Simulated assay, not measured.
Amino acid sequence: MGNANLNISIVDKRMLKQSEAADYTGLPIKHFKTTCPVQPVEMRPGTTLWDKRDLDLWIDAMKEGAEVATHDAILGKL
């Protein structure tokens, strides 16, 4: 029997589709749509993706009990 080698490369995506972002946060997509304050990035017309780093910041802020510092929230405090 011959030896078989598998060369598997896994790329950890930074930008996620809405369903992937919901899975990443552990929320059902319906709940994700209504509660997630993270704004998606329009990578090209008609393609919006969520940045994992922004999702992490939101989750970390929730754990700390802090308000997420969104662009509008920062401007509102000025």
Score class of each variant (00 low, 15 high):
2 G>P: 13
2 G>N: 14
4 A>G: 06
4 A>R: 09
5 N>F: 07
5 N>P: 11
5 N>W: 06
6 L>N: 05
7 N>V: 10
7 N>L: 13
7 N>T: 15
8 I>H: 01
9 S>F: 09
9 S>D: 05
10 I>M: 09
11 V>R: 14
12 D>H: 07
12 D>W: 04
12 D>Y: 04
12 D>S: 03
12 D>R: 01
13 K>A: 07
13 K>C: 07
14 R>M: 15
15 M>H: 13
15 M>R: 01
15 M>F: 11
16 L>T: 05
16 L>D: 11
16 L>E: 13
17 K>S: 15
18 Q>D: 12
18 Q>W: 00
19 S>D: 11
19 S>G: 02
19 S>P: 01
20 E>W: 01
20 E>P: 00
21 A>W: 00
21 A>V: 00
22 A>L: 04
22 A>M: 03
25 T>V: 15
25 T>S: 11
25 T>G: 04
25 T>F: 05
26 G>A: 08
28 P>Y: 02
28 P>E: 01
28 P>S: 03
29 I>A: 00
29 I>Q: 01
30 K>P: 01
30 K>V: 05
30 K>Q: 07
30 K>G: 04
30 K>I: 02
31 H>D: 08
31 H>N: 05
32 F>M: 04
34 T>H: 06
34 T>N: 05
34 T>G: 06
35 T>I: 14
35 T>A: 10
35 T>C: 13
38 V>A: 03
39 Q>D: 07
40 P>T: 13
40 P>F: 09
41 V>F: 05
41 V>A: 01
42 E>H: 01
42 E>T: 02
43 M>I: 15
43 M>W: 15
43 M>V: 12
43 M>G: 11
44 R>T: 02
44 R>I: 08
44 R>G: 01
45 P>D: 15
45 P>M: 12
46 G>I: 09
46 G>Q: 11
46 G>M: 15
47 T>S: 13
47 T>W: 14
48 T>N: 06
48 T>M: 07
48 T>F: 06
49 L>N: 15
50 W>I: 10
50 W>G: 02
50 W>A: 08
50 W>N: 08
51 D>C: 06
51 D>P: 01
51 D>G: 08
52 K>F: 11
52 K>T: 14
54 D>C: 03
54 D>M: 04
55 L>S: 04
55 L>H: 03
55 L>I: 10
55 L>D: 07
56 D>S: 03
57 L>Q: 06
57 L>W: 09
58 W>D: 10
58 W>Y: 14
58 W>H: 08
59 I>G: 12
61 A>I: 08
61 A>Y: 09
61 A>D: 11
62 M>P: 06
62 M>R: 10
64 E>V: 05
64 E>N: 01
64 E>P: 01
64 E>T: 03
65 G>L: 00
65 G>W: 00
65 G>S: 00
66 A>Y: 09
66 A>G: 00
66 A>R: 02
67 E>K: 08
67 E>Y: 10
67 E>P: 03
67 E>F: 11
67 E>R: 05
68 V>Q: 09
68 V>E: 09
68 V>C: 10
69 A>G: 02
69 A>S: 02
70 T>D: 00
71 H>W: 13
71 H>A: 11
72 D>V: 10
72 D>P: 07
73 A>S: 10
73 A>Y: 15
73 A>E: 12
73 A>G: 10
74 I>C: 08
74 I>Y: 14
75 L>G: 09
75 L>V: 09
76 G>R: 14
76 G>W: 12
77 K>M: 11
78 L>S: 13
